[in-house]
């Protein structure tokens, strides 16, 4: 690797190169990007081009396609372009709806097993998964429940970050001070999730398109898949939703991002109108769909 090159001007991404890279990512992970993502690709992948000591994006494309390490590098690339910024207690209205109206229904359904599992599908750096764990720990109806929160993401580095559980100030922009004091402790330059929350959370590296691998999650009571479907094309979106449907227990809930819906994707879920949100539910056994 040449340090001189990495210090040189950033490689520029031509539109034809962008389309090649975009299609490659789509083939591998089902993720879809419009022309506006060109700048994101250029900014985030230029570092990879420099690190591999390549002359430009045309060489990078060939590396991804034909080099023996191409597949591993493609996953690095997807990592780089999909890493998204997130924070604790994001979209609070939806979290309130979950706690006030979804959790009581699940608690009722699981009153015998006293087990509850929630899956944060596309958890990025883990803030959502830990948020859910804190909310479930706080929930009065779940005292004595065996609670499990599963966080999964396509990005391996995001999963490693989530496991570490140490966050900077920007992750706490909407975190209530009281909860922050109780569930985080200072750790060097950041704040670490306390063990009582960490022990509820389990992180894994999953491609949501891969139904077979997603089976390792087991059966869950609720899935949070927020701001993930927007990255997929229609065909892939259907496949992802189908996989999430398979993982949900009958009567289990699916919560999407505020701009996402299942319109034109599937009719396997029923729409549930809550006071503050709309959520989807997998029909319970024996119920009409």
């Amino acid at each position: 690797m040449s340090s001189a090159r990495s210090l040189g001007p950033r490689a520029r991404l031509r539109s034809d190169e962008f389309r090649l890279l975009r299609d490659l990512v789509n083939d591998h992970a089902g993720l879809t990007f419009d022309e506006s993502a060109l700048y994101v690709f250029e900014r985030r992948l230029a570092e990879r081009v420099a690190q591999l000591d390549l002359r430009g994006f045309d060489e990078y494309y060939k590396f991804l396609r034909f080099n023996v390490r191409g597949l591993a590098e493609l996953e690095e690339a997807i990592d780089a372009i999909t890493t998204k910024e997130t924070y604790f207690f994001r979209q609070d209205y939806q979290l309130r709806a979950f706690c006030d109206e979804v959790v009581p229904r699940i608690a009722q359904a699981q009153k015998d097993s006293r087990r509850l599992t929630v899956w944060s599908a596309g958890c990025s750096s883990g803030e959502e998964a830990y948020t859910l764990a804190i909310l479930l720990l706080e929930h009065p109806l779940l005292a004595g429940f065996d609670i499990k929160v599963i966080g999964s993401d396509l990005s391996r580095s995001s999963i490693a970050f989530a496991r570490r559980g140490v966050y900077r100030e920007s992750s706490f922009r909407t975190t209530p001070e009281e909860l922050r004091r109780r569930y985080f402790e200072a750790d060097g330059t950041g704040h670490r999730v306390v063990d009582s929350v960490r022990r509820l959370c389990h992180f894994g590296n999953l491609n949501l398109l891969d139904g077979q691998r997603a089976a390792v999650v087991g059966r869950v009571d609720a899935v949070f898949c927020r701001n993930v479907l927007i990255y997929f094309d229609v065909r892939s979106r259907r496949k992802v939703i189908d996989n999430l449907h398979q993982r949900l227990l009958p009567g289990g809930f699916l919560l999407l991002g505020h701009s996402e819906s299942l319109i034109n994707v599937t009719t396997a879920f029923e729409l549930v109108h809550l006071r503050e949100d709309l959520v989807y539910r997998k029909p319970a056994l024996g119920a009409q769909t």
Binding site: S152, I159, G204, N205, R213, V216, V217
Partner: peptide
């Protein structure tokens, strides 16, 4: 153990 199959 099964979930660990998704480890990064």
């Amino acid at each position: 153990i099964v979930f660990a199959l998704s480890d990064e």
